[in-house]
Amino acid sequence: MSAPVSPGLRSGSLPLLVALMTLLAGLSIAGLTGVQTLAEGWAGAARNATTIEIPSDTPQLEDRTRALIQTLHKTPDVTTVRELSPPQVQTLLAPWLGQVTDSGHLPGLSLPVVLIVAHTGTPDLGKVVHEALPEAVVEEDRRWGDRLNGLGSSLVACAWLAVSLIAAIVVLSVGMTVRRSVMAQRKAVEIVHFLGAGDVTISSRIAGRAALLSLAGSLAGLLFLSPVITLLARKLAPFSHEAGPSSLPAATWQTMLANWWNTLHVLPRLLLEELGALPLIAACLGWLTAQTVVLVWLRRLP
């Protein structure tokens, strides 16, 4: 331990507070990243794709579908036309209808034929489809893409606001803890000041301790956050375009750890980097806040 030249910081509940704030900030950032990833993925896919649904009760369904596909192939800017198989339609609708295990039909509900048309530019597919097969419904995916973008942007703004508020709470918590500590050790601080300790000497010792405690608290917060993020990643996996983590039955510690590691492995790199930066940010905030509070307090001494 280094030789004391100034009183240190009485930490109180600072590490616990920072741990909780890190947990909240981590959840906000994870939510932010998730929303960004989903919105970008969906919007990107929607911009250059159009979905055509042909009701199952359309007369001469197969022949007319084939004719429509040929017409679409000939339409300028259309690159591919893909007919989804019944299992693919089921998968597509699984988040809303659940997994269907029978031969492809839901009780009382016939699945439509679904065509996914990939294209460049903005061909007027509505007109082409309406002329060839009036019963078909054209979903302009671009419209959904725009809405998703708008929703994504709003959620991103909310998440940043939450992160900013959390940072402000950390600054306030550190500031109050440091001020309480200085007041509690007022006599000792005055003694070292009147023996010739510089303001920065006094403030640096307290700020160093505040930074260390913030770092420790934040690391603990990340530790608590890890299982929560893993759980959320698993819940969100079906909505992601990325390959989800392969799930093993969580019967033993080994399989649970393997599951956790697999999930962690497929989390976006940016998210992991941002979460990894949280302890450093917390330490910097702690250090800066403590320095400022102590230096301002010391100004009252001659």
């Binding site: 030249v5 006599k187 003694i191 070292v192 023996l195 010739g196 300790a197």
Partner: peptide, 28 residues
């Protein structure tokens, strides 16, 4: 730092040892 002072109320830092209190002026 060039002045030594013996206060009537001693003004020693209670959390530190006597040695650390006495060593403080030289450390500063």
């Amino acid at each position: 730092r060039r002045i030594g002072f013996v206060p009537q109320d001693y003004r020693l830092i209670g959390e530190w040892t006597v040695f650390d209190n006495v060593a403080l002026p030289l450390r500063l």
